[in-house]
């Protein structure tokens, strides 16, 4: 089976890219494709806890990130260098991801059959 790697590299809600990328991710999981999800650069903000986008009339898709493991998506990675750059700590993020180095991110991208970002 071909593998896919999804790259979230933008913060949520200013556009719908995170939400629409997540939709592709869930669909690919339904096809049983091996999936890696990577949060890097400003994409690390996607995983911040306590998001309340209802105050700007936007559906909260961060809840769906929590459901990724129900869809069989277990390889969820956050780039440590990006966390450092944005002054964030793992404790501030949804407890679904593993912090990894940029080298691991590189390797994941290199070894996947398809890589999708929006």
């Amino acid at each position: 089976m071909k593998s896919i790697c999804f790259i979230f590299n933008k913060p949520p809600y200013g556009d719908h890219k995170g939400r629409e990328l997540l939709d592709i991710c869930l669909m690919s999981a339904a096809f049983d494709m091996p999936i890696t999800v990577i949060f890097k650069s400003q994409g690390v903000y996607q995983l911040l806890q306590n998001q309340q986008p209802d105050v700007i009339s936007v559906k909260n898709h961060s809840a769906t990130f929590k459901a990724l493991d129900l869809y069989g998506v277990e390889n969820i990675l956050v780039e440590s260098e990006s966390l450092l750059e944005h002054n964030l700590k793992m404790e501030q993020l949804l407890p679904i991801a593993e912090a990894v180095s940029q080298d691991v991110v590189k390797h994941q991208i290199a070894s996947s059959d398809f890589v999708i970002g929006l």
Binding site: M1, K2, I4, D23, I24, M27, S28, A30, F31, M33
Partner: peptide
């Protein structure tokens, strides 16, 4: 059509 058409095309 649905998003499944993208995934199917990738496969």
């Amino acid at each position: 059509s649905g998003l499944g058409q993208l995934t199917e095309a990738m496969l």
